[in-house]
Write a protein that binds this DNA or RNA. Sequence first.
DNA 1: CTACGTACCTGCCAGC
DNA 2: TGCTGGCAGGTACGTA
Length: 279
Amino acid sequence: MPELPEVEVTAQRLRASLAGATLAECRSGAKRLRHPFPKAAATRLAGQPLIRIGRRAKYLLLEFPPGWLAVHLGMSGAIRLCGPDEPEILHDHVRMRFACPEKIMVDLVYHDPRRFGSFRWIDRRYADSLDQQLSNSPLGVEPLGTVFNGAYLHKASRGKKVSVKQWLLSGHAVVGVGNIYASEVMFISGIDPRRKAGSLSLAHCELLADAIVKVLRQAIDAGGTTLQDFTAPDGSEGRYGQSHQVYGREGLACPRCGKSIVRIVQQQRSTFCCRGCQR
DNA sequence: CTACGTACCTGCCAGC
DNA sequence: TGCTGGCAGGTACGTA
C-alpha cells in the first residue's frame, strides 16, 4: 500500500488520537515480519510516555524517551485504533495498549497480510544517524520539506543513467514517491518515464518537482490511496484513487489527449503512461 | 558507487 | 465450479 501520503495520513490521525498517551503494554504475534520484532525494547517501554509521532520517508516514528519505534507498513500494512476488548483478526501482528488522558485505554493494532512491514527499535544514542538506522540505502530529502525544488532535483540528477522513474523510486534524491505516485507525477509533468534522469533539463525538473509536491499534498488531503489493504487508523479508506490520471488505467483514454494509456514494465514493476503526452 | 535480479508473503482476479 | 498464473503499495541482499 503505502507510499508517503498513506504513512503521513496514518501519522496525522495517530497524533490526534494518542496525544498525551502512555504505553501500557505491547504484544507481538508469532509470525515474523520483515525483521524480528524488538521484543526487549518494547517490553522496556511499558510505562513510558509517547512523546511524539513523526515520519521520515515511509517510516512512521513512535518516539519515547529512550528512543524510537520505527514502523514500516511494507506493501500491505495498516494501523487501526480500537478498544481493548475488540478481538484480534487474521493478520494482526502487533498490539500496543495505550493509556490516554482520562484513563481511556486505546489499542494500536498493526495489521499486515503480506508481512513485508517491520518494527525496529532505534535507541536515542543513535539519534544523529537516524537515517542510516532506518534504511540501508541513502534516504533523499523530504518532498514536502523546504530544500526540495526543481533546482535541487536538477542538481541531484546530473550524471544519472537510470530511468527517471527508477530514480524516483530509489528514494536516493527524494523520498516517499512509490510506484503509484511515480506514474502520476511523470504523467502530470509530461515526462517519459523511460528517459534517463540525467537527461532532464532544469525546466523538466521544475515541472517534476511541482508535480511531486502537488500530487503528494492532494493525496494526503484525500486520505491517501486505497488499492486493497490500506486504511487510516479510524478504518477509513483513502479517496485519492478516484483522482488517478494514469495508474491502473491501461487501455483507458488519456485525460489530456485521449490516446490509450499504456502499461510498460520497468525493473519488473508496472508504469502507466501516455505515449502522446509524455516525452 | 551503480545496476540488475531475486526473495520475502498473502490475496485477488482473469482466464481456462 | 475449480485450478493456475500473474499481479499487487516496498525494501534488502546478492552478484557483476
